[in-house]
Design a protein around this nucleic acid. Structure first.
Lengths: 238, 238
DNA sequence: GAGTGGTCTAGACCACGCC
DNA sequence: GCGTGGTCTAGACCACTCT
């Protein structure tokens, strides 16, 4: 059970929807019924329902009620902030991470600009390939300001940087900007990936910000064309 | 001025941020001050601020206040539900739409599946190329159930389908699922686009739903590799 | 008319940042 | 301690849907 009432209600409903206890396209209890059920005020119930709506679990229809959407059709959203490890774990496929580089460097001017830092600040550079079904199909290049992350180990890089930052360092990631484009492969790409004959590569640039709106990480994910897939759920907001 | 108080406050603040009246990375008035300013309750002010936060305009920091983000860095989000016309108008580039096809058809089995309809229902198929700087770089193929859109004209197709549906037909688009992948060009792509020597094409599949959660349109946007760009802003939600 | 979700209010208590 | 945003409440009125 989570700390906040509305999150507890949210979690409860998500669990019921994902487990199939509440079937797709059926009506949820009305807000007033939930007020009784959960013993809270209506605004609190509504906060939980709005979260469900934003995340694509339900659709609210005025005068009628809240209805579950068919979540299985909206399969895994790569949207939001999901790490490779979370994703691939969810899919249940065998995979491997190969660390090619982990070093504390003076950033070049491109990275300096991307991270918006001074030339004398040092950054961690981590280069890792992701192997699925025996093929290295994604190259992740992470650049992290040392000011936020004093130390880093090889083992961490083989696991999830993300959970290290959030879990052990207590850094709170708040939002991110993603940019997807297609580019020509670099020598690095040819060296670290099994690129076959593809003459292009999908580049996902990720700018990651903390709670205080400071930019602390820049990640470039380079995906082999045939293995790239991005799913997004968006509400037409106001 | 919009109908709802919280939207009016939202609009007011967006305008101030975008016009530069409120500079990037500065502090907004506190919630209590806004309560005075706008003469509403605090929850209403907070509703407006949460919208701003979701849409990447501000960052709220507990104990400190709400701060504007540098919106120029987060330039045009292709995310959400934006039509080609809206996008290109915002960029202010000269462009042209070429309609290659507009017909009422029996859907093939692929489209039937995508739109989740019966074989005997008819659908509009519209194929349009988007020309920028003298090159046809995007091919949009729209499939719309006739049950929602009884009539359609050539002029509408040359403009914005979207504003026709929302404006004249009064259809209310509520949410969409997007899927981005890369594929090999079809004969249609070669015929209707200036593909140069590119051996692949970026495919954006869009499933568009109405307020009552009915799927009413399937759109496939096929982008030339070098001109494709997708920007997304995502908060790490709860 | 009864039931539903959408908006709004006035007030309360809490956790956090800062001085 | 004071000001900030985060949560929660109890109640109100509205617009919409269905019967």
């Amino acid at each position: 059970m989570r700390e906040n009432k509305f999150l507890a209600i949210y979690d409860d409903l998500v669990e019921q929807i994902q487990s199939g206890e509440i079937k797709p396209s059926t009506k949820l209890p009305s807000e007033n019924e939930m007020v009784e059920q959960y013993g809270t005020s209506r605004e609190t119930v509504r906060k939980a329902l709005n979260l469900l709506s934003q995340n694509g679990f339900i659709q609210k229809i005025k005068g009628k009620g809240s209805f579950t959407l068919d979540v299985r059709k909206f399969d895994f959203p790569v949207s939001g902030l999901v790490s490779f490890k979370e994703l691939v774990d969810k899919m249940g496929k065998p995979w491997k991470t190969i660390v090619y580089e982990m070093a504390l460097e003076k950033p070049n001017s491109y990275i300096q600009k991307q991270l918006n830092i001074k030339a004398n600040e040092q950054v961690w550079k981590i280069a890792r390939a992701r192997e699925l079904d025996g093929e290295r199909i994604i190259l992740d290049k992470d650049y992290v300001c040392q000011s936020f992350v004093p130390t880093l180990s090889m083992e961490t890089c083989e696991g999830s940087l993300f959970s290290y930052f959030e879990g052990e360092l207590g850094l709170k990631i708040s939002f991110a900007k993603k940019e997807i484009s297609v580019d020509e492969p670099t020598e690095e790409d040819y060296k670290y990936l099994d690129l076959k004959d593809y003459k292009h590569i999908v580049v996902v640039k990720n700018y990651i910000y903390l709670e205080d709106a400071s930019l602390f990480q820049y990640t470039e994910s380079r995906h082999r064309l045939d293995k790239f897939r991005f799913v997004d759920f968006a509400r037409r907001g106001h």
